[in-house]
Write a protein that binds this DNA or RNA. Structure first.
Lengths: 229, 229
DNA sequence: ACGTTCGTTATTGGATCCAATAATCCAGTT
DNA sequence: AACTGGATTATTGGATCCAATAACGAACGT
């Protein structure tokens, strides 16, 4: 991860981080030349990065005057979380509306077992948070994949560029590990409830539960529980 | 529209059309150099176009071997329409869940009046289809804007690059103008029903109706009724 | 005859250069 | 003094050039 990154990726990641962190304030113009000099690269990586960021909605094109940063407000993060909720809700609705493949049921239970194991004991260390993160990712990925609707994944990939999955968000809870455990445990139980509704074919309930599960991340200072990349 | 286009836009549009139309078959590799020569431009516009198309999911990166076209199957179009339905459903849900601004009610009624005017008489010409297209766009745009959730628009912008709004789709119906009128009239009445549910604050109903409205486009050979850009 | 390794080649990513274009600034005029 | 016009300049988009890299093929050794 700390390996030397190609210039294009490096500039893209750096700019994205600077915008979402507010280091580049909202509305500030981002010129190609000055940015290129700032990073010590040519204008080319900056250009491609700005194109990508435009697609992500993090910068806006100003006609001929280049691009301007679009600051990410907490309200926008809430917006993105809400969108993620309905998209993942659609995914589970689709799964629950169709016959359940035996292989899926098995894989789903295997993933959920990871979560069960995490909260089997009363102890909870920061390492557990990492493991929960992996488990959570696997859970959401499995559902997304099983839905068979690739358009959901395409739409989701936008939201996940927002700082919902950043380590900074997680750090807030690391101070109080007991609270973190309770919160993550609640999330896991929501997973279980969603899974049960899916396997029982209760599509409406599965969708509703998934939406609420996403919205749980709206609580400030709590783990975002973001899905895939 | 038929004005001379900049090379970048031209290549992007052309490639997009060629992929969704199947002129470039699924899995076929798209090399920068040969494509650039084919269009008579340098590699640069092709590069940016491929980057954009990758974001849209229409091409896949093949590590070092460049990109490959990802053919758009009818199933994928259905997927995208379903996603659009839930996203626009979320938009109207949000609007209906909040107090209605007087200005919004007025603007909404003004837009719907355009639709009323279209179907006031029994005659229907191809020109009316164009007008319906504008009206339809205005309706969906207004809802998207009023929702206040920009993440919805960002997510939607992906889906609308699929050939749902292409003139080719519209052409199918131009052969039988009477059928087109009936279909578009039904869509307009769905708009009215959605609007009524919104203004009455019936959020669930508004969302459900909007979803079904989107799915109406699933009927083959019928106008997609696509939303914004 | 088959596998391995080295060299060639095709192809993308980055850098630099050039052209077009719109915004800004200054001067001239009313 | 204010407004209008043109000229300059800053900035993006496109073209060409260079470097890095991985795939492909051939030759050699076992």
């Amino acid at each position: 991860m700390t390996a030397p990154m190609k210039p294009g990726q490096r500039v893209l990641f750096a700019l994205r981080k600077m915008i979402v962190s507010g280091e580049i304030p909202d509305g500030e113009r981002i010129a190609e030349i000055s940015t290129a000099e700032r990073f010590g690269v040519s204008r080319m990586p900056v250009r491609t990065a700005l194109r990508t960021l435009e697609q992500e909605g993090l910068v806006a094109k100003l006609g001929r005057r280049g691009y301007a940063a679009r600051g990410v407000t907490p309200a926008q993060i809430d917006d993105a979380i809400e969108v993620r909720g309905v998209l993942e809700g659609l995914a589970v609705r689709l799964i629950a509306s169709r016959p359940i493949a035996p292989g899926f049921a098995r894989r789903l239970k295997a993933v959920l077992a990871e979560g069960d194991a995490l909260f089997a004991g009363a102890d909870f260390a920061p390492e557990h948070v990492d493991r929960f993160y992996s488990y959570n990712l696997a859970f959401h990925d499995l559902l997304l994949e099983t839905s068979g609707n690739r358009a959901i994944g395409v739409a989701l990939s936008r939201n996940n560029h927002l700082p919902l999955a950043s380590a900074a968000s997680l750090a807030l809870d690391w101070d109080d590990i007991a609270t973190a455990r309770e919160y993550l445990k609640a999330a896991h139980e929501e997973h279980l409830a969603v899974a049960e509704a899916i396997l029982a074919g209760r599509a409406d309930e599965a969708e509703q539960r998934m939406r609420r599960h996403a919205k749980a991340a709206l609580n400030p200072g709590l783990m975002p529980l973001v899905g895939a990349v």
